[in-house]
Design a protein around this nucleic acid. Structure first.
Lengths: 405, 405
DNA sequence: ACACTTTGTTCGGCGACCGAACAAAGTCTG
DNA sequence: CAGACTTTGTTCGGTCGCCGAACAAAGTGT
């Protein structure tokens, strides 16, 4: 529709600043932009003029008068581009298509043994992505980029686009290159917990919070650490890999070789095993005689089944030990619980808070509230897509139709 | 000597960049600066010209030819200003005077009951500062600013210059205002562990490391967290206050109300108490019959006294539990042990490393080496002074003789 | 109806920065 | 050892981003 052919908005610092301001404020007048950026109205007028032809912003009517002529509102065009987010989990793969405001345009999920069949996973990712685009039914050329979440650390030096040495079994399979070829857009990768944190920071419980920790409790346990509004990856990219924090010196041996790691107590497999071993003590539990699965346990907990609650409780206490350490060390503004276990809500958070209270200073514990995510199972895929949006807002060349001069 | 009267170098971005480059490279040609900053030689020539008249940089001879005319080296003048750093400890106050390269020009220390006598402390700080300046015997007008380390969290929103509500007993005593009035220069404040980390990052074991944790073990235990080369303070300023991490659910009760806090095991008081209770088991120890003090224990440990080594060992294991958590969570490039206990060196680090090894993933533990500081007892005061240097390099207006146009 | 505000545009001008040109002072080659 | 080539640092005219003043348009209040 709109002729969008490599319009010139180079690495223009001011144009980027204005674009970000318009995104944040959704619709804002040129005069307001001038005040917000400290530039003159004449300069802003010129910059906005260049942004208008990219289609990323548009004049969207008049605003309220502030005692004089009514301002022309310049609004960010959320539908100027779409982003694909992919969540590669241990057992499932899901894909999400969003606009530039994080709205979900399409979603697809499929179970897949990711670790043992990387080749099939690559094909499945492409397929789910195609399916999302087909469901959306828009022009494919508006696809800006693809974000991929992997259940594994990433290289902190070059977390972008590259990276094959993530999943050991995936080495050399060129999954990302393939995605790039199939869809013809840049591909970004990061750790799943990190991207869950991104989703919370932009659309969830952590909006406006610069320092917080996102705890993903699903197949495994991992933390995404946001510091100063940016993902913190550590010196070698394994920051937040808290599955192997030792919380019980006399605990069971872990695959990592140590004893009593958090991962020996919390995680899909561990909770199911624990529930099974408790079955005899809870003959009235709804879980007796069923095929035990994590989903069933979570559902049972939501229905206040005593066995399920006991399992959740124990997990909460174990998590609480680690969360207490996090609070004392990092003093985050918030701790957000995500992953499937977050579905049980207060049944997880309440005992966790209690465990934390006995292990932290009032000053640090009081400052950060602990809550569950409400983004649901799509959180990580949404975060993956958002990661691309963040990259584009920092470097508008990634937006469709915006090219350097 | 040099007429230095408010020469014009405003918030000039380029001038600041050039100044920082010259500081880093110590002496560098204009052409080299042009290459390093990406500006043209003509532009750099003009900027350097303005910097020369401030006295912060000077032409310091010719460099090696690279196949053509020999370059004129522009060198940073380390003695263009001096900075006062003050370490307000729990039992001692010390002051240090440094040049702009962290060289110690003078040092003074005195025991003082800081918590119970804030008024006297304020006078003592001023006195020690005056004494340092007198020993140095230079023009007082070259004093750029004062950095103060306090054994208490600071407000993350405004860690600069202000802040009285730090030490409860110090409230409203206007110590900083008084310093400002007496010396007529800006005063900056921060937490002691944070400033210890700053010292390590600029002059110690962490030079070139962006993400690391500094652990100060002295009267109490505290951590300074450096992330991306900047001090991380947390959402309410208590990040790094790890004294009350619970490491032993069955441990002794702590003043904070919880049980088994790190602070109940490690710290001057705790180590001395522990040594006393072990005396009976070590009749051959050199510490038997002496007046037990932390310094004596440290000295004994350095002489391989078995009792002292046992005390250090136990502390190392306790610290190791917390360090392991830090490594798993933050994956820092390094963990640096400071404070008086760091004096014992490998006798602390070796058992600590062992304790850490059984509690961390190979991936994170292997990446970050754990070592002791070699900055000694002056580390924190040095860091306080360095904090002012950092502020000045970010905002050259703070340098003497540099004013806005 | 009038004075006053606010918005958005036009236009002349300032200043930061660049590139070309040049002199000075080196190195390298035959 | 002379001549060709390099590199440095300066000078100088030109470009470009941004500003401020001025203005028309479109509001608000009395």
């Amino acid at each position: 529709m709109i002729p969008r052919e490599a319009v010139a908005v180079p690495e223009d610092d001011l144009a980027r600043t204005v674009l970000n301001l318009v995104w944040e404020r959704r619709a804002v007048s040129r005069a307001e932009i001038a005040r917000g950026t400290g530039r003159s109205r004449s300069t802003i007028s010129e910059v906005v003029g260049r942004l208008l032809v990219t289609g990323l912003v548009a004049e969207v009517g008049a605003g309220e008068s502030r005692g004089g002529r009514r301002p022309i509102l310049v609004g960010f065009q959320d539908d100027a581009g779409v982003i694909l987010g992919v969540d590669v989990g241990a057992t499932h793969i899901s894909a999400i298509l969003t606009d530039l405001r994080g709205r979900v345009l399409a979603w697809r999920e499929r179970a897949h043994p990711v670790r043992t069949d990387p080749k099939g996973a690559a094909a499945l990712i492409a397929g789910l992505g195609e399916a999302c685009l087909a469901e959306w039914n828009g022009e494919q050329s508006r696809l800006m980029g693809i974000g991929v979440a992997v259940p594994s650390p990433v290289d902190p030096g070059s977390p972008d686009r590259v990276l094959e040495r993530v999943l050991p079994a995936w080495r050399g399979h060129g999954v990302l290159d393939r995605l790039n070829r199939v869809f013809g857009v840049p591909v970004f990768v990061d750790n799943d917990a990190n991207l869950g944190a991104v989703a919370e920071r932009w659309w969830g419980e952590a909006v406006g919070i610069d320092d917080f920790v996102y705890l993903k409790v699903a197949t495994g346990v991992g933390a995404g650490i946001m510091i100063g509004g940016e993902i913190y990856r550590g010196s070698t990219g394994v920051a937040g890999e808290i599955g192997h924090v030792a919380i019980d010196p006399g605990g069971p041996e872990c695959v990592c070789g140590n004893r009593g790691c958090l991962a020996t107590f919390v995680g899909t497999r561990q909770l199911v095993d624990r529930a099974r071993s408790l079955l005899d003590g809870y003959p009235d539990s709804a879980l007796v005689g069923t095929e035990l699965g994590i989903r069933a346990i979570e559902d049972a907990a939501l229905a206040d089944d005593p066995l399920a609650l006991q399992v959740v409780n124990e997990a909460a206490v174990r998590l609480g030990i680690v969360v207490a350490g996090v609070l004392n060390l990092l003093n985050p503004g918030s701790v957000i619980l995500g992953g499937s276990l977050a579905r049980v809500g207060d049944r997880l958070v309440k005992p966790l808070r209690e465990a934390v209270a006995t292990r932290t200073l009032v000053a640090s514990a009081g400052a950060s509230d602990i809550r569950t995510s409400d983004l649901g199972e799509r959180a990580v895929a949404l975060g993956a897509a958002t990661h691309v949006l963040v990259a584009a807002l920092a470097n508008p060349q990634l937006f469709p139709g915006v090219k350097s001069a």
